[in-house]
Design a protein around this nucleic acid. Structure first.
Length: 723
DNA sequence: CGCAACGTTATC
DNA sequence: ATAACGTTGCGA
């Protein structure tokens, strides 16, 4: 008996290895094909992979159930999955799962048919039949339901006429092809600097080679217009384009800018696109009927058939980091995808990440700097308010100097923006009697009071419940006090100070996402709002023409976090938000409320010394062996008990202050790279790459009390060193 | 003693 | 991922 033919199959489950299956007689399979494989007691979809598997004994070998008619993973996509899994220490199957999202059977649907009048008269003519024939008299082919509806009768009347030959079934004309983006439409008039940059990008796209270009363009320099020229070049050469943006920036105005340039909106791919949309986009991208996609990070895994350009807008944005499941930075993986597909990659930002700047300096990336548009507004004048000496009275959050600046702004008929990256009313609720702190039952994070919704909300896991009247611990009534400010509280304070002012909150939870937000933004743009109070939302998009004052209520918001990129994030976010102040004719001003006015990030903002900040930060990064200079790994603790895990996280944060992104995961979330018991170090050594774990981290691993669930290790290494 | 709850292990 | 399997703890 001949040995059965076998293939290696990667399954979208938390498994790193491929499994070997027998191929049923008569089935031809190639790597990348989608198949149905028996797994345990169920059937599981999978992808034929390349490479050899470990030998299996014949008794265990199972036979595939068949092939799925769907676009699988071409060679570069399979290498992409392998590389990401290797790099992020995730099981390959878990990465594959991301690449199969939106996958559906692509068997072409049977052609649609409709009814047309034949001219033959039915044997009996009832009033209902007359109506149908009248409706069909124009000769248009209509589906049964549509024809019945047009005649105002039920579908069975149509059936009766068809049975007697008065109507016949004919194929419907194919739906008109969807309108494609048109690169030939005239673009906007570019300044000489923009035109020069656009030309460089067009050449890169025309070459059709992998390369990375960093566009460093301050707000208002027109970097979107510039990279749109690269998109136009790719489209006109018959290549597909992928533009990536942080989820929060994928707004209607963003899509409309694209539509204005190319005539139609691009296909979109992000978290709130439903299953149907997903399926349509994946299929369209694979068969080539979709030419341009605008996507959040997961759009990286779409099976483009002829990708010619990837743009990563706002490349510095921390939202590109996926922090659950497979831990990856979409900006870095976009560069990898471009390399594997042989496509140029454009990274664009007004405040480029330190990693990208260094990669440009080292010559790995080309760099295009866009100066501010001629005649555009100058950078705002920024000053710090030292809250230790010039802060507000107890129980208030706006310093006198900021209050008087707001008053001045309002009396000039201009707008003020108060930026505070904290949703809700107050981040902590405390019992004055017994000291009890309101904590989330699931994750032990503090519950944030949302007075607008009259509830306490956990910003970690989404848990929410009504705000209690009495302390749940000691029962004292009226003893609960709200500590610290959120945007709602700032609104109350501003309303008390400026009762005449029209105030608007821009925060994801107050607004939702759709109509209300659009209406509110419109009101702000028209000048129907005097004071805008906003979270991170206000850093992106939307031009507020009357805005001349920005106040950062808590400029230090990220500086205390155990995040090694805290200073950089603070600097970038404050630079973006303060950059919004100013009208066409003159610069605006910005006030930063801070308890740490000597912090390098704050000082650099006040001095307007961006390069100086990056120089200091670069040295700090080098000293800490951080990417792109070192090989720092991030460590994530898991333990069955949330409390225990939190405690381990805190212990680790103390022991290893440079560790990034400590997150506590449930045991189910940490399958493969979980390091257990006494095998910790051995498993570390088995990891796909050798880690230079910093000494403090090794010490922590050796000395820490044993987390019950184990320790999961993720990388934070500049991937460029492996490309 | 039986079985539910929970953690562990294997999946070709 | 998820089903099957083993252990443990508690009520009958």
């Amino acid at each position: 008996m001949p040995l059965p033919k076998t293939v290696e199959v990667l399954l979208p489950v938390a498994l790193d290895r491929t499994l070997t299956y027998a191929v049923p007689d008569g089935l031809e399979l190639a790597p990348g094909d989608v198949v149905v494989a028996p797994l345990g007691s169920r059937a599981q979809i999978g992808v034929v992979w390349d490479g050899a598997g470990e030998a299996v004994d014949g008794a265990r070998l199972k036979t595939l159930e068949g092939r799925v008619p769907a676009t699988g993973l071409a060679g570069p996509m399979r290498r992409f999955v392998d590389w990401i899994a290797d790099y992020t220490l995730a099981p390959r199957g878990q990465v594959l799962r991301m690449a199969l999202r939106g996958l559906a059977d692509e068997t072409p649907p049977p052609p649609k048919t409709g009814f047309r009048a034949t001219g033959a008269a039915p044997s009996r003519l009832t009033p209902a039949r007359e109506k149908v024939l009248a409706a069909a008299a124009d000769g248009v082919v209509r589906p049964k339901a549509r024809l019945a509806e047009a005649a105002g009768v039920s579908a069975s009347v149509v059936d009766g006429l068809a049975a007697e030959g008065a109507l016949e079934l004919t194929p419907l004309p194919p739906p008109p092809p969807q309108q494609q983006p048109d690169p030939a439409r005239p673009g906007p008039k570019l300044t000489p600097h923009q035109a020069h940059a656009a030309e460089a990008l067009r050449r890169a796209v025309a070459d059709g080679q992998y390369r990375v270009v960093l566009i460093d363009g301050v707000t208002g320099s027109g970097k979107t217009e510039v990279y749109c020229e690269a998109v136009a070049e790719a489209l006109s050469r018959g290549r597909q384009t992928l533009v990536m943006a942080p989820e929060i920036a994928l707004t209607v105005p963003f899509l409309d800018r694209f539509a204005k340039r190319f005539g139609v909106r691009p296909a979109v791919w992000h978290a709130s696109v439903g299953d149907m949309g997903r399926t349509a986009v994946r299929r369209g991208v694979a068969d080539g009927s979709i030419r341009a996609v605008v996507a959040a990070r997961s759009g990286l895994f779409l099976p483009f058939r002829e990708l010619g350009l990837i743009v990563v807008d706002e490349e510095h944005d921390a939202a590109y980091k996926q922090e659950d499941g497979v831990l990856y930075n979409a900006r870095d993986m976009a560069v990898l995808r471009g390399r594997l597909e042989g496509a140029p990659v454009v990274l664009a930002s007004a405040t480029p990440s330190l990693e990208s700047r260094v990669n440009a300096e080292r010559g790995r990336y080309a760099k295009l700097a866009l100066p501010a548009r001629f005649g555009g507004r100058a950078m705002p004048e920024i000053a710090a308010i030292d809250m230790r000496v010039a802060g507000p009275p107890r129980g208030e959050w706006l310093a006198p100097r900021l209050v008087s600046a707001i008053a001045q702004t309002l009396s000039a008929g201009e707008q003020a923006l108060l930026f505070l990256n904290r949703r809700g009313y107050a981040p902590l609720t405390l019992c004055r009697r017994c000291g009890h702190r309101m904590k989330c039952p699931n994750c032990s994070a503090w519950l944030v009071e949302h007075r607008f919704r009259a509830s306490l909300v956990c910003h970690h896991c989404g848990h929410s419940g009504p705000t209690p009247d009495a302390c749940p611990a000691c029962g004292a009534a009226d003893a609960l006090v709200a500590l610290g400010p959120g945007v709602e509280r700032i609104r109350d304070e501003a309303a008390a100070r400026f009762p005449e002012a029209r105030i608007s909150i821009l925060s994801s939870d107050v607004m939702g996402a759709g109509e209300r937000l659009a209406a509110e933004l419109d009101a702000i743009e028209r000048g129907a709002v005097d004071i805008v109070i906003g979270t991170q939302m206000v850093t992106k998009g939307h031009h507020f023409p009357k805005l001349t004052l920005v106040g950062a209520v808590d400029a230090d918001f990220a500086l205390g976090a155990a995040d090694p990129r805290a200073a950089e994030r603070t600097f970038q976010m404050l630079q973006q938000v303060t950059g919004r102040a100013g009208r066409g004719d003159r610069p605006g001003r910005a006030l930063l409320q801070t308890f740490d006015p000597d912090h390098p990030a704050i000082r650099a903002l006040v001095a307007g010394d961006r390069e100086g900040f990056y120089a200091v930060e670069t040295e700090a990064r080098k000293a800490a062996m951080m990417p792109p200079f070192g090989r720092l790994a991030a460590v994530i603790v898991t333990a069955p008990a949330r409390e225990a895990a939190e405690a381990h996280g805190r212990a680790l944060a103390r022991a290893a202050p440079k560790v990034e992104g400590i997150r506590v995961l449930g045991p189910a979330e940490a399958p493969l790279a979980m390091v257990r018991g006494r095998h910790r170090m051995r498993l570390l050594a088995q990891a796909p790459r050798t880690f230079d774990l910093p000494a403090y981290m090794r010490a922590w691993l050796a000395a820490a009390p044993q987390p019950r669930g184990g320790v999961r290790v993720a990388v934070d290494v500049d991937p460029q060193s492996f490309l």
